[in-house]
Design a protein around this nucleic acid. Structure first.
Lengths: 185, 185, 185, 185
DNA sequence: TATGAATGAGTCTTCATTCAT
DNA sequence: CATGAATGAAGACTCATTCAT
């Protein structure tokens, strides 16, 4: 791992676990095993680090979407695969999930950056578009569908990570059905 | 308005518009037209102000729920009323909505306070419980339904407040249908 | 007890137990059962309260001296009586002893006030003067003798209050002898 | 002088001359020619600076004791040397003397730190122990002798620094005799 | 006299960032 | 590229004192 990657990784962990406000640059430096000044050879500012993590998480998210859309499969199978894929991605990367939550409404992420992040949802948009055209999904703005479904998944992850899902397999199943019924015709 | 109420109101506005981190006590004092020390005559700390606003918003939320559950009406009408009532409450109180978002994942609101806030959801829980018993709603944990539906509404409010809903009446209609289809049998 | 006396008493206790710096006027008010503003009807400032306690303790000290100098007794008996009397006075009034220590080198007691307090030592001065004249005590400045003997007593009180005197009766006896041998011819 | 030493020196001077309460960190910084933040690069807190000065003064004190105990000399000569050595050390380092007085009963020095400081008195204890065993000194707890004698010296320094010793050589002589007669057999 | 809300200067401390080495 | 000492503006909070009631 390069020093740069190490810094990104450390920042991610610290912010996810203790919030931005409680994460000074000095701590990032110490936990990364570098001097304070060194950070500024790799990044312009604290904001830049945060934004870089934010955007790279969105890029990775795009790959998760792509990896779970198997054109050959039926539309319902694809939908379940997509939903579960994203859910599991978050569950397996809780730091990333927490990080985005911490950071999303802070001054570190402005509307421009948020907008930039939305680009990576395109493949999901297309999937819903196709579903609507083919008469499988109710007619709605694809952006709206995407946000609602993504919101459902986030709700589940949030509950799961907080240990609020007893018999969780079953509840996850319920939640996917919830989303599916919400949009299918 | 008492000085105390003025302070709560000012804090709500400032945090909603510019985040907690960007809202120093000195600014709260100045915008409230009082001296810094005066704040501490009314509140123990910045944290206490934030928590008080948070919890009183949850209490108000409870009244919104109650006001929109008309037992006499059919279950679908009740659901649409509840959904729209909450949505409109948020749209009419955007500062409160933003405030809760800003504050929710900050160290100012700990799990204990969050838990304390969940008490006020009880009436919604009961509504979903009844709906499941009577065979109108799919069988799911009521907590799970509540969180998912509330998530849907929040998604809509978020999009609306960010000006991302063209032809918004229509889209709100779509979103309610989304939620309704998600749970109805 | 008048409100004024109550305030003096409370201040004495608080400062003795937790130092001046840790004793705000607000606490003095609360523990005295009055409002903050009330203090300022009775005293001009915090400094005035402290000085008043300081000087009244010195006045009381004068009475302790007088009460323990029995002209009829022999000089050694008088000395032992004086030494023990002061020692016991301090032991029985530990708050006063601690208070004076806390306050003595703080900006609240200036050299003028300290000088004012020394007036009350006159009777002890006279006692030593007489002892020197009659050839019982070594020839020294009476102020010097007084300060040294008083220092001895304070040392003992300090050790005693800190629980550092095992078999304390014996050690107190040793200390009085120490002082007596120091000055007797 | 390193920046660290400069800070210690400045703090010593300021506190000695104007008390802790009247010595804000900002003034320590300014008089040391550094920024406020720099202090915290070298010390954890105000308390740490004060404690460090306190303990290093005690360490130095130990050396003063050792330097003035000449085993070859007679016991009386040693005693006079020790007494005078300490006295002169204080007179030549009035800031240190005042500092310890200012700080001794403040919350900055707790009992633990005070206890830690007492370690450095060991050599004096041994000297008195030996004197008692050899029949030169009256039988007393060595801790008690030490505290009483040290109290005598402090009394003298205090008077001297306050300009209250006219014909001071003579009075110092008297005071040493006072201490010597107090313990010798 | 008594109250207690209000004041605001002042305290310690933090922390993103810079810069000489 | 790397270091870490240094910066200084800014933050939360305290507290002696005032003043309208």
């Amino acid at each position: 791992m390069t020093k740069r990657e190490k810094l990104l990784q450390t920042t991610l962990e610290l912010i996810a676990n203790q919030s931005i406000q409680a994460t000074p640059m000095s701590q990032i430096a110490k936990e990364s095993g570098v001097a304070t000044g060194t950070i500024y050879h790799h990044f312009k500012s604290k904001e830049e680090i945060v934004q870089e993590i934010y955007l790279s998480s969105k890029k990775e998210f795009q790959q998760v979407i792509q990896a779970n859309l198997h054109a050959a499969a039926g539309i319902k199978a694809q939908f379940y695969s997509l939903w579960s894929g994203i859910y599991e991605y978050y569950i397996n990367n809780p730091l990333l999930f927490r990080f985005v939550q911490q950071v999303n409404y802070s001054p570190y992420i402005n509307e421009a950056t948020r907008e930039e992040g939305r680009v990576y949802y395109q493949d999901a948009y297309k999937f819903f578009e196709t579903g609507i055209m083919s008469g499988h999904f109710r007619k709605m703005e694809v952006m709206l569908i995407s946000e609602l479904i993504h919101g459902n998944i986030s709700t589940l992850v949030e509950l799961q990570l907080n240990g609020m899902l007893a018999d969780s397999n079953n509840q996850v199943k319920s939640a996917i059905d919830f989303s599916w019924n919400a949009i299918r015709i």
